[in-house]
Amino acid sequence: MQRVNMIMAESPGLITICLLGYLLSAECTVFLDHENANKILNRPKRYNSGKLEEFVQGNLERECMEEKCSFEEAREVFENTERTTEFWKQYVDGDQCESNPCLNGGSCKDDINSYECWCPFGFEGKNCELDVTCNIKNGRCEQFCKNSADNKVVCSCTEGYRLAENQKSCEPAVPFPCGRVSVSQTSKLTRAETVFPDVDYVNSTEAETILDNITQSTQSFNDFTRVVGGEDAKPGQFPWQVVLNGKVDAFCGGSIVNEKWIVTAAHCVETGVKITVVAGEHNIEETEHTEQKRNVIRIIPHHNYNAAINKYNHDIALLELDEPLVLNSYVTPICIADKEYTNIFLKFGSGYVSGWGRVFHKGRSALVLQYLRVPLVDRATCLRSTKFTIYNNMFCAGFHEGGRDSCQGDSGGPHVTEVEGTSFLTGIISWGEECAMKGKYGIYTKVSRYVNWIKEKTKLT
């Protein structure tokens, strides 16, 4: 034993070699072989497995989906700052455009905790909710729209109204504003409101030439003092309507412009014939205590009207009353817009006519005020429907199939267009061939041609 100890002390290297040989010859039971080890760690190889990531292109799944990435790591994937920024906006807080917040056709661009709407022409605001041009839906104005110097929408209202708090709607500024039905039992019968379409306001006024200088022999019209197929109006439903009495009662109609003036057809009036105007009328054979009678003290036909040349060209006249009318729910003026808007309103496509005229061709006159909704007829169809001249200051309205029309005794009465609950004068009943005849239409004086003249002559002093 002493000898062994001496050998170990003198030859430590020998001992180490012996131990190493023993270990190498022993069977290893701690580690699995290569094949079995792979069965336990069965993990798919990654895209760049075996390579240094710093030297390969980034992978979106590896960089940002398996674990949260930084902007720089995302930049490695896209290799483009702009594309990385677009991805980053949604990656950080989701897609803010998912709810489609942009209105009126706006395009949404996502941002971090926010979004941006790219608005089409005519709109602005956070969600493109603000109209900035009158060309689109009248700028959301209830009545009139004008573009300011910086191309912003400025709404306005006709006389007797003021802008509401929203700067879009119009509200009454006087007790009985024009064009409004205020009798409670008839307010439910107000005709369907007309909503502004998209309009090209630059070209809204037709490029028409008034044929002022045409000389033409007097034409022989049949029954051209021209509501057939209409309905009984309720008291106060058309408070701007008046009836004219002269040699015979209810020979023509008219509309209240203001307390002192009536507008009617020029062919209705004769110099030297006494005319009485009755406002607030409903049943011409009954006294309903809503009527107001006034005498006409002055007749002003349009300066281009000449019955000797043509009885229905420039067929418009103004009547001055001896005493002002007292405005109330049964006696209310009709609204008159400017030339541009009167023309736009007419193009809405349908209007209402009213009167006490004959209820059928050569038949009896109506006792109760009649009204009828009539569609506008395109000019080409209008011209083809008659052998008589249709001037540019006239328009056609009615039904091709016949059966409904204005008729004798309705002449001078109103053709009105309702705009968001307020009625505007767009025409004056003038003439036609018979009444409600198939293929024939009622012919009306186009008020847009005469609004400046009306307003100039009827100013209240």
Rank of each mutant, 00 (worst) to 15 (best):
F121M: 11
F395V: 02
G179M: 00
T422Q: 03
R191D: 11
T458R: 01
N203I: 07
T332W: 02
L163V: 06
R449Y: 15
L24M: 06
Q57T: 05
F345W: 11
V199H: 05
I136T: 03
L130C: 11
E259M: 05
E67M: 10
F121S: 11
L163S: 03
W453A: 01
P414A: 14
V277W: 01
R83C: 15
S11F: 12
Y450S: 02
L32Q: 13
P239A: 03
V92G: 13
K274R: 12
V273N: 12
V242M: 00
V242D: 01
I428R: 01
E67P: 05
C117G: 02
F221N: 10
A397D: 02
S204H: 08
T290Q: 05
S406L: 14
R75G: 15
N138K: 14
E82K: 14
P235W: 06
G122D: 05
V447P: 03
C18H: 02
Q216C: 11
E320D: 00
A397F: 02
E456K: 10
F221A: 09
P177A: 09
H289M: 10
L24P: 01
S217D: 09
E86S: 15
L23F: 15
H302W: 07
I284D: 09
M65T: 06
A37W: 03
M65K: 11
T264F: 01
N245L: 06
G236H: 08
S220Y: 07
T81N: 06
C335P: 02
K347N: 14
K152R: 14
N295F: 06
E82N: 15
A317M: 03
P333D: 00
V199T: 12
T218Q: 09
A436G: 10
D212A: 07
K39V: 04
D338Q: 05
E434S: 13
V257W: 01
G179H: 01
A164M: 09
R46Q: 12
K387A: 14
P197M: 10
Q90C: 13
N213R: 06
P301T: 07
D200T: 05
N42S: 13
C134A: 02
C117I: 01
L425H: 02
Q237T: 08
A149V: 09
S354V: 15
T186V: 06
G229F: 10
K438R: 14
K51Y: 05
N258Q: 02
K459R: 03
L383W: 14
N38T: 14
T461K: 13
T186R: 08
C252N: 00
Y450K: 01
A307D: 08
A266K: 02
K362A: 12
W88N: 15
K347H: 07
Q219Y: 06
A308W: 04
A26N: 01
Q90R: 05
N343G: 14
I300C: 03
N48P: 12
A37R: 15
M6D: 06
P414K: 01
S187K: 04
G236W: 05
A149P: 07
V30C: 10
T264E: 00
G349C: 03
G58F: 05
V77T: 11
G357Q: 14
A366M: 09
Q143N: 01
N313H: 09
N245K: 06
S182E: 09
H302R: 02
C141E: 00
K168N: 08
G363P: 11
H267M: 02
K455A: 12
N147K: 13
C155Y: 00
Q241M: 12
V278H: 06
K137F: 06
Y22C: 09
V92H: 06
G427N: 01
V154Y: 08
E288R: 09
G421H: 11
T209P: 06
Q2V: 14
G442T: 15
V296Q: 00
C134P: 03
V183A: 08
T422L: 06
Y330H: 13
D315L: 01
Y441V: 13
V92K: 14
E286K: 08
T29L: 12
W240K: 00
N283H: 10
R364F: 10
G229T: 04
H289N: 11
I297A: 09
N104R: 08
A317G: 02
C252F: 00
H267E: 02
S350N: 14
H302Q: 03
M437K: 11
G230Q: 03
T194C: 13
A337N: 01
E35N: 14
N59T: 06
A250I: 07
S182V: 10
C407K: 04
G427E: 01
S182W: 07
I443H: 14
A149C: 05
H302N: 05
A265E: 00
G409W: 13
W356R: 15
L425G: 00
V296M: 02
E27F: 02
N5W: 08
E281R: 08
K51V: 09
G160Y: 02
E73H: 11
M437E: 15
D93V: 14
T85C: 05
R75S: 03
I210Q: 14
Y352T: 07
W240S: 00
T133A: 13
L367R: 13
S99G: 08
G272Y: 05
Y91N: 14
E320K: 03
L60R: 08
N213L: 08
E86C: 15
C268Q: 00
R140Q: 14
L376K: 12
W88D: 15
K234N: 13
Q216I: 03
D410M: 15
D33C: 04
L19S: 01
E288C: 06
F31Q: 15
N393R: 04
I390D: 15
V174Q: 08
N151A: 06
K293A: 05
Q241I: 13
L367S: 07
A192K: 10
C396V: 02
E285C: 09
L372E: 12
L52P: 15
K51L: 05
Y441D: 00
H302E: 02
V269P: 02
T445P: 00
N245H: 06
A37V: 15
L372P: 06
A265W: 01
Q370C: 09
K274W: 03
V269F: 04
Y115P: 12
H415G: 02
V416P: 00
G442H: 14
Y312S: 05
D378M: 05
K126I: 12
G427C: 00
N166D: 07
E456F: 04
A397V: 14
V447E: 00
C18F: 14
L19A: 03
Y441I: 12
N135R: 10
I15P: 03
T332P: 01
T445C: 03
V278C: 05
E79S: 06
I7A: 13
W453E: 00
Y47P: 06
F176W: 08
W118V: 10
V331N: 01
D249T: 12
D232L: 05
N147W: 07
F144I: 03
T158Q: 11
S411G: 11
C119E: 03
D410L: 06
P175M: 07
E66Q: 09
K347S: 14
R373V: 06
D378Q: 14
A337K: 01
E288M: 07
F144M: 04
E142P: 02
T215H: 03
L23W: 04
G442W: 04
D322A: 10
F395C: 02
E72C: 12
S423M: 12
C145R: 02
V263H: 01
E76G: 15
E420A: 04
K51I: 04
I297L: 10
Y115T: 15
T158D: 02
T194G: 10
N38M: 06
F55K: 10
R404Q: 03
G413K: 06
K274I: 08
C170V: 00
K311P: 12
D232A: 07
V30P: 12
P12G: 13
K68G: 05
E76Q: 14
V278S: 07
F176T: 06
D378F: 03
I15W: 05
W356E: 03
S217A: 08
D131S: 12
Q57W: 04
V277I: 07
A37F: 15
Q2G: 10
E116C: 10
P414C: 15
W453S: 01
V195E: 10
K459V: 09
C396D: 01
V296D: 00
F399K: 04
V202C: 15
E171C: 05
Q57F: 15
L367P: 13
N113M: 09
